[in-house]
Simulated assay, not measured.
Amino acid sequence: MRDLAGGFGHLLAGQRWVFRNGRWLGFGLLPGLLALVLYAGALIGLGYGADDLTAWATPFADDWSAPWLGLLRGFLTALVFCLGLFVAVITFTAVTLLIGQPFYESLSEQVDRSVGGEAPESGLPLARELWISARDSVKVLVRVLLYGTLLFALGFVPVVGQTVIPAIGFCVSGFFLTEELTAVALQRREVELKDRLALLRGRRAMVLGFGVPLVLAFLVPLVAVFLMPGAVAGATLMVRELRGEDEERAEGDGADGGGAEGPADGTARQERPGQHGDPAPQQPSPYTGPYAAGPRYPAPQQNPYAQ
Rank of each mutant, 00 (worst) to 15 (best):
G289Q: 13
G49I: 12
M228H: 04
A224K: 06
A280N: 07
Y297S: 09
A250V: 15
L71M: 15
F92H: 05
F176Q: 00
F27N: 13
L53K: 02
F170P: 01
G274F: 10
D136N: 03
I168D: 06
P281A: 06
R272G: 14
A134P: 03
I165C: 11
P304G: 12
Y104P: 01
L79N: 13
L208N: 03
P273C: 13
S65K: 13
L53D: 13
A224S: 08
A260I: 10
Y291K: 09
L181W: 04
W64Q: 07
N303T: 09
L154D: 07
V115M: 10
L193D: 02
S133M: 09
R20H: 09
Y297L: 07
L146K: 11
P286H: 11
T163V: 14
G123A: 03
V220K: 05
A264D: 15
Y39E: 06
A235T: 03
E271P: 00
Q110I: 03
A78R: 08
P213K: 06
E109N: 11
Q282T: 05
R204W: 11
E129W: 00
G74V: 04
F218H: 10
L200F: 08
I90S: 03
L71G: 09
F226R: 05
E118L: 12
A280E: 13
Y39S: 07
D51L: 11
A306T: 15
T182Y: 05
